[in-house]
């Protein structure tokens, strides 16, 4: 994307007003690290939203509220009980990109390599959008289509919310790529809530080998209510992922993408189960 003009507002209201006035020509611009992948539109104007006080992580009742312009590096460096986004953010290359790339940017425009949406999907996080007033949307609803399409002119993501993760809730995340800086061949995330020896709730999502982040409800449904036994995972995954549109990247075949998808999904389910049981990895 090449811009012809830029604005640097200092308050959220100013930014929203500018974006509203610009309409289709206005682009909320934070870290900007993905704009090289966005196709040009004539007359585009960048509205810098990094100075609106939207950066920072707050602990809330049972979870976290992460400001939209919080950088990925902030996610990596933050430490608190039940905080898991550091594990996701550290696998988003590279350090220079993590230093400027923001949570809002990572979730507002979905790419095959978008990672944070997976975590929000399985942890059933929320996305806070301001159209003057803040409204929280469930992640599942937010990510069912390209999120930008649901924004009105002037609407801005101001924060995301997610729960603190501790047993009996466990989280698993894994990304497979050719090099550490490469885009994902396959990324998987899982969250498991245990009820004694049963899988009370299973949330599973994949990206990288799919076109956009997706919850894998067929696998979830097959596992929920069953015994907390990792030997059940492979079968449920195998039965539940066949109908998806697996896409091989980096010269890999679709067949391999599907295979890799299955392996990684089992891995993240095992990680999540272990964490749900309170066992160290």
């Amino acid at each position: 994307m090449r811009f012809v003009d830029f604005l640097i507002p200092e308050t959220l209201d100013e930014a929203r007003a500018a974006l509203e006035a610009l309409g289709d020509r206005g682009y909320a611009f934070a870290g900007g690290t993905a704009f090289q992948y966005v196709s040009d539109r004539p007359g585009a104007t960048a509205v810098d939203i990094t100075r609106l006080g939207l950066r920072g992580i707050d602990q809330t009742d049972g979870g976290f509220r992460v400001g939209a312009t919080t950088t990925l590096t902030d996610l990596v460096r933050y430490q608190a009980d039940g905080w898991v986004l550091d594990r996701v953010a550290t696998r988003i290359p590279t350090h220079q990109v993590r230093n400027v790339s923001t949570v809002g940017g990572n979730i507002s425009r979905l790419f095959p390599w978008s990672d944070l949406p997976l975590a929000l999907l399985v942890l059933e996080g929320g996305v806070v959008i301001s159209d003057g007033e803040e409204q929280t949307h469930a992640a599942l609803e937010f990510f069912t289509a390209q999120p930008l399409n649901r924004f009105g002119h002037g609407d801005l993501v101001t924060a995301v919310t997610l729960p603190a993760v501790s047993p009996p809730l466990g989280f698993g995340f894994k990304k497979e790529n050719i090099t550490n800086a490469a885009f994902a061949l396959m990324t998987g995330a899982a969250a498991i809530t245990l009820d004694g020896e049963r899988l009370a709730k299973v949330r599973l999502a994949a990206n990288g080998a799919l076109a956009v982040p997706q919850r894998l409800t067929a696998v979830e449904d097959a596992l929920e209510g069953r015994a907390a036994d990792p030997s059940l995972f492979a079968g449920a995954v195998e039965d539940g992922i066949g109908g998806l549109d697996w896409r091989g990247r980096e010269g890999m075949s679709d067949e391999f993408a599907r295979h890799l998808g299955g392996v990684i999904l089992c891995d993240v389910l095992e990680q999540a189960l272990q964490a749900a049981k309170g066992e160290a990895e």
Binding site: F3, F6, I8, G32, T33, Q36, A46, D48, T50, T71, T73, T94, H95, Q96, V97, N99, V100, A181
Partner: peptide, 25 residues
């Protein structure tokens, strides 16, 4: 392309790729 890092500078304390940072930022 923001890939190689040979343009790294420090902006507000953080290493950034100057090639994919717009001057206005």
């Amino acid at each position: 392309d923001g890939a190689c890092g040979s343009c790294t500078v420090i902006m507000d304390g953080a290493a950034v790729n100057a090639c994919i940072t717009f001057a206005f930022q």
